[in-house]
Design a protein around this nucleic acid. Structure first.
Lengths: 169, 169
DNA sequence: CATAACATGTTATAACATAACACTATCAGT
DNA sequence: ACTGATAGTGTTATGTTATAACATGTTATG
């Protein structure tokens, strides 16, 4: 259980909290409601709950952590429940999977379609979704020898300022 | 078992075979031998075998596929065997993990230290390791607001030319 | 109000990964 | 050679993540 035991982390590093999460939360709920309304998709209590669980702390959660939270809130907590809803939310861009953590996180920029990139602190496991342009990252051409890229995964792992200040590695 | 059942795939698309694998194989064995010699690290029969298994077909293999192959060749095939050797080979840059497939692949460019990027066909699951520059991808600055990036994961999923020619999605 | 499509619930199991400890081999210093 | 440290491998058990398969309920529409 070396790298997967805890996901608490309470670090602050500029990139990790450059937003007012109260606003972020309300905005996000608004946006997802509008999106589903517009698309004639059901924003069911279960889907809403899963999204709320993810957005309320705005940190990556494992599927089984989400299931626990669902259970606490009176929903079913068998694995397929979480995975199905997560798949659905991911399809529509409101949730992303952090491959390096086997965890899921609410999208920080659901309004504009994007290829997300994530910065992950390996000590506190805090994750920031960064804008391609702001971060200096760029996938210039998503077309490589006629290979049509449908989806990109970009994750940068390291140690955030707070964690590196706090300890000598 | 939707996305994880088979890993055979026999597609050819320019990006996927722009090298002579006979040479590639020999080179790779050479390079890894020299590297370990120079670093005074043991290139044991087990480590050699795991690397050979990975390099011989040069496609991503799951840990349990590697274990089966090890078993066939008379080695122990309990999970920690594979994971330990894979970790070791990854530490030294001779193997990469493809997060999107939970699979491992021999490095195509072990000689120069690099941040690998992978192109993955979601139909045949063939994988190509691409050069950052050639592919038009670039992580310009690995430093984002003082966050020091130690490791990057870049994977591009789509459909390769051969697969897209072969079917109508 | 039937029915097709969608959504959720449940059980079981598959697939991926690590902990903990035992044993063996290698090598440096005496 | 002996001794102890280090590294490598073996084994059992278990933890963690994810899906298959099928049952039931719910919703939108004709």
């Amino acid at each position: 259980m070396a790298k997967k035991k805890k996901r608490e982390g309470k670090t602050t590093s500029k990139i990790f909290d450059d937003h007012d999460h109260g606003i972020c939360f309300d905005d996000a709920i608004d946006q997802i409601e509008n999106y589903f309304l517009k698309k004639n998709l059901q924003f069911t209590p279960l889907r809403r709950k899963v999204f709320e669980i993810l957005i309320r702390d705005h940190k990556p959660l494992g599927a089984y952590e989400i299931l626990e939270a669902l259970g606490r809130d009176g929903f079913s907590s068998s694995p397929p429940i979480a995975y199905r809803v997560l798949d659905f939310l991911m399809e529509h861009g409101f949730v992303h999977k952090i491959q390096g953590l086997n965890a899921f996180i609410a999208c920080s920029h659901p309004n504009h379609s994007h290829s997300p990139a994530f910065v992950i602190c390996r000590k506190c496991e805090k994750v920031a979704e960064v804008d391609e342009k702001k971060s200096g990252i760029s996938f210039a051409s998503p077309n490589i020898d006629n290979f049509e890229v449908e989806k990109t995964t970009v994750e940068m792992t390291g140690v955030c300022t707070t964690c590196s200040r706090a300890a000598t590695i």
